[in-house]
């Protein structure tokens, strides 16, 4: 059943009682934005409600005038929009990412946005919020996706760096979130060398540092002599893989940091030499576990591998359906 509180419409999830959208895929008058990835946070809305960090990320990506007005909300802080109460809870996806908790007349719906359950040194951990309807993503909604421990993946990378001191390690990863998390994980593993950045990474890394996430010594690739990059770690967006840009690196080891790297064919199609299974999305166990944690009677699945998650949720006793929202996942797919 469609709830009057929130229902899927062509532009995204719409709350009629409060006349606002959550993560609309086109410009609207009022929007609650869960996080800064471009498929969820678009420019041109009239008014935007989000965390301070998400607003800063949107301003960095789209310029200061990305929305008519903005309102920052801390985690746990509530507001009322047209009689509907809205608060934000941490989603553990990227810095500033939030679940939108929408409540009206005793009915509580949680829009998770994108989320993960494991620890991430660059953002606040996911908080399960009990609710009546839980709206979840399903990017990795197949039981073949069980992400390994981060530490093991980072160790694999550092082992390869020691094995090939004459080569550069080019890690491609999304510019927002994944890149900074990899840097932070490398620092936790004791890697103190300067890390080199593709131009597209630099601004968001600087913003993370400004927002209180230390990343250590960072250098631009631009202008660094080829010889200096041997044995170093370089971060670039996925478009740089196999691009003309990569020819400036000494015999690069192509590494791709993504949950998709679980599937060998995916990694091979991209010409990846060292796949790193690091994801900012919940894996199968995290998705199914979260449904149990929030204890909602009803589950809606927004995007990803909906069929499998809906099937499992029904088996586990939830009412479940796929929303077939279009426009999400553009940034999740390699």
């Amino acid at each position: 059943m469609d709830s009057l509180l929130l229902r899927p419409v062509p532009g995204g999830l719409y709350c009629e009682a409060g006349d606002f959208y959550v993560d609309p895929t086109r410009a609207v008058a009022r929007a609650v934005i869960t996080h800064g990835h471009s498929d969820h946070a678009r420019a041109g809305h009239g008014a935007v409600l989000a965390t301070r960090e998400t607003l800063a990320i949107m301003a960095e990506r789209y310029g200061e005038g990305f929305a008519g007005t903005t309102q920052a909300l801390s985690y746990g802080e509530g507001v009322t929009i047209g009689g509907v109460s809205v608060r934000l809870a941490p989603a553990g996806h990227v810095l500033g990412s939030a679940q939108a908790v929408v409540e009206h007349k005793g009915m509580r719906i949680v829009v998770s946005g994108d989320y993960k359950r494991r620890r991430d040194p660059t953002c606040a951990p996911f908080e399960p919020v009990p609710c009546d309807i839980f709206i979840t993503e399903a990017t990795f909604g197949l039981p073949v996706f069980r992400h390994p421990e981060d530490a093991g993946e980072i160790a694999k990378l550092l082992h390869s760096v020691r094995l090939f001191p004459e080569r550069a390690h080019l890690i491609v990863a999304y510019s927002l979130g994944k890149a900074q998390r990899i840097i932070a994980l490398l620092r936790e593993a004791g890697y103190a060398e300067p890390i080199f950045l593709h131009g597209a990474m630099a601004k968001l890394c600087a913003l993370y540092e400004k927002l209180g996430v230390p990343l250590g010594a960072l250098r631009p690739v631009m202008g660094a002599p080829k010889g200096e990059l041997a044995g170093k770690i370089i971060l670039a967006p996925p478009s740089a893989l196999g691009d003309v840009w990569s020819r400036r690196l000494p015999d690069p080891v192509a590494c791709f940091a993504s949950g998709w790297m679980r599937v060998r064919a995916r990694a091979r199609q991209r010409g990846v030499e060292l796949p790193l299974i690091l994801s900012d999305h919940a894996d199968w166990d995290e998705l199914t576990g979260t449904l149990r944690d929030v204890g909602a009677g009803e589950v809606w699945v927004t995007h990803g591998q909906e069929d499998a998650l809906v099937h499992q949720a029904r088996k586990d006793g939830f009412r479940a359906k796929a929303l077939a929202l279009v426009g999400y996942g553009d940034e999740g797919e390699p």
Binding site: L142, V263, D307, Q312, K315
Partner: peptide
């Protein structure tokens, strides 16, 4: 579960 296996095999 056979449904989950088929969906997964189809994907992988």
């Amino acid at each position: 579960d056979p449904v989950l296996f088929d969906l997964s095999y189809d994907y992988v």
